[in-house]
Write a protein that binds this DNA or RNA. Sequence first.
DNA 1: ATATTTTCTGAAAAGTTTTGAATTAAACCT
DNA 2: AGGTTTAATTCAAAACTTTTCAGAAAATAT
Lengths: 252, 252
Amino acid sequence: MQSEQRKKQIQAMLGEREIVSLEELAREIGASPSTIRRDLIDLENTGLLQRTHGGARTVARETQDEFAFRNRLQRFQEEKAAIGQAAATLVETQQCVICDTGTTVYEAARRLEEKMPQILTNSLPVANFYASSAGVELIVSGGVLYPRLGALVGPVAEKFFGQFNANLAIMGGDGVTADGIYNSHTLLIDIQRKMMEAAERVIFCLDSGKVGRRSVSRLCELDRVDLLITDRKASPEVLDSLRKRGLQVETV
Amino acid sequence: MQSEQRKKQIQAMLGEREIVSLEELAREIGASPSTIRRDLIDLENTGLLQRTHGGARTVARETQDEFAFRNRLQRFQEEKAAIGQAAATLVETQQCVICDTGTTVYEAARRLEEKMPQILTNSLPVANFYASSAGVELIVSGGVLYPRLGALVGPVAEKFFGQFNANLAIMGGDGVTADGIYNSHTLLIDIQRKMMEAAERVIFCLDSGKVGRRSVSRLCELDRVDLLITDRKASPEVLDSLRKRGLQVETV
DNA sequence: ATATTTTCTGAAAAGTTTTGAATTAAACCT
DNA sequence: AGGTTTAATTCAAAACTTTTCAGAAAATAT
């Protein structure tokens, strides 16, 4: 296996647990302790983790503070990337796209550059990604920064999405059942509804971990959604129940 | 198969995964490792991917941006940091502060955390800095992203600053003479004027390289400015002429 | 259409880097 | 302090790259 791939795996493991032992890493990854040790040295030099006796631990949040870093340590990273890729292909050149917050939508948004789109978003990570790209016209909603998510919320953001029309909205959430789409971040829900109203077509990107799950608040019913993209690990029974309700579902 | 076709396929594979091995590429594309390697060299030279031992990976986009921004911080870095520090000490606990765009203002903004301020800004780097800080209430103006500066501009941003009042505005610019403050980014000027109107007190942070210089557009006359902070290398003659016009100047 | 030049491809040789095991040094625990 | 575990070091084998070269494909000229 390649060193880059191992390092990615190490970071993924540290994303789920805060501390991980060398022995465990070597066993899980299938490389010798020497090799893992060398990888850890590299990763420590780049500031991506902290080495300990017998393993490694995550670095304090203040030191890495980049959303992108946290993003790489996500669960379902592979799936989210694939879902994002699929969503990105649905965008046509120079369309106007609304991008919601969340890691899965981020994965879609970052793949839009070649479509030269106009992007409307309240997601700071998305804005940041295109901060030096001339090909994408990025319009950021104002709003109060909601720290954990890097989302702009509040009346300013809500009003913003009320003034525009877009071809497509790429949305995220925390759960989907036959009853509708759910989101745990109540502050986002009103904004998301405005986004959906403003878009001709509404696509939800949810990894399989969210399929069949509910969350605190219901965002909308399924008939407000034009397409759901998820990954192959999603339960077929739940997907069937969604399709029976008339929802178009794509798996990647 | 054509080389262009292969390269497209390589990029497609990297769109789905972050890392891909040479062996895998060769197998999937049906070309010899040598050929794939040559393609990878081309793609790397065009900056479209990063070669690794045994394969390739997507270029770390986030790091590029960060790099670009940090690069701009290089000139007068020391001075800018000192100016920023001085500006930050003028902020009192829980005040509402407007932060302009630009590197010097950024240096001030990033030192405000302990003041627990409310920050109003159209600067993406500033927003990003506090993206995971709970102590600072950060309100981002909306607007179209102006790529080179990471600034949000246009009517949305302008209107935003029209609605608020703040204790202090920490401003930047490209030049100052006895005739006033100058800025080369015309798109920013209207927004800066709104910022200044919204604030009780207006502070400009300009490193010595900008003192005595003019630039494309004049932002305002000196009487609209409450305090100018610059560094010791600034020409004393120019500073005297500014003081004679009634401007309070602080050097660090 | 054929010949010639140029470019591209795949394979082999030569040179690097990386890896895992063995050895030596350091750190931890009671 | 002594015993055990973990880390650094070293080195040969393996894996990967670069270089080189001959043949195939494409482009150009005849």
